[in-house]
């Protein structure tokens, strides 16, 4: 009995350690950004002045807006590409779908950000495509990085619904392709689209490796400003990190909620049958 108790205590302590290992580095930027100073073991005081600073200074405010613009645009681009493609690939049958899903896992590993960055530098700085340094290019670079994740999420949801039966039922009622998408298919695959969107958004907001390689002189995203401020202004760095951590956590909570809703939705579907 005693031995068992010791084990339980050890397991509890391990669990606490494992939770702290992840939670602590996530909380550090948030705590730092709301404290007046943190030069000793514990932070001192409470303030929102670092956040006021990033909102008040045009450079940081524009950085925030640029990041949001790029992230939202990358999400939209990925949705416009992946939803029709996933529909079509799902119709091509399980084999094509599973091959492409496998590819969407391997390709980002073979073509990591450093390669995407140099490819964009080489490909779009000379005719026929001279887009070097433009924000437009950043949008598509982020869309390219996020697109395997969006594709996988959307295709996975398409594979769980009985798309053919739904489409045929809608078609027999006279719905054309667009109407079937608008009123039948999209409402059914929206969880996959939403969780893909959150993932792409979070990836884009925090993206640094490709962005620093293709950045132009006219714009900077939050991670680029964070890179600079890590060296000159640790306070501003804490506020930017706080914003980015919060974005990741919110995106992540959203994805968790959606996957819970999908589970609940499936149960409801069973009940109806």
């Amino acid at each position: 009995m005693k031995r068992k108790l010791v084990w339980t205590v050890i397991e509890r302590m391990l669990l606490v350690f494992l939770v702290v290992y992840i939670v602590f580095p996530l909380l550090v930027p948030i705590i730092f950004s709301f404290s007046i100073r943190w030069t000793d073991i514990f932070p001192d005081g409470f303030t929102t002045q670092w956040y006021q600073k990033i909102i008040a200074r045009p450079m940081y405010y524009q950085g925030l807006m640029t990041s949001l613009l790029v992230a939202i645009s990358a999400v939209v681009v990925d949705i416009l590409i992946c939803v029709p493609a996933a529909y079509s690939i799902n119709r091509l049958g399980g084999r094509v779908g599973s091959v492409l899903r496998e590819a969407s896992k391997t390709l980002p590993l073979i073509f990591p950000p450093i390669i995407v960055g140099i490819a964009f530098l080489r490909g779009f700085n000379r005719p026929p495509f001279v887009w070097g340094g433009s924000l437009f290019l950043a949008v598509f670079a982020h869309a390219a990085l996020g697109f395997p994740f969006m594709f996988r999420n959307v295709l996975a949801v398409f594979q769980t619904i009985d798309e053919r039966t739904l489409s045929e039922a809608a078609a027999s009622l006279g719905a054309n392709l667009w109407q079937r998408f608008r009123y039948v298919l999209i409402p059914n695959v929206i969880p996959g689209i939403l969780s893909g969107a959150l993932l792409v958004f979070a990836i884009s907001m925090g993206e640094f490796q490709v962005t620093i390689m293709i950045a132009g002189f006219g714009w900077r995203t939050l991670p680029l400003l964070l890179y600079r401020s890590l060296i000159d202004d640790i306070r501003v760095a804490s506020a930017i990190s706080g914003v980015l951590v919060t974005t990741s956590i919110i995106a992540f909570l959203g994805m968790t909620l959606i996957s819970m809703r999908i589970g609940a939705g499936k149960l409801r579907g069973v009940e109806r049958e």
Binding site: L199, G206, L244
Partner: peptide
């Protein structure tokens, strides 16, 4: 999904 720079910070 965490930015590499946030982890650095």
């Amino acid at each position: 999904t965490l930015s590499s720079l946030v982890v650095a910070f």
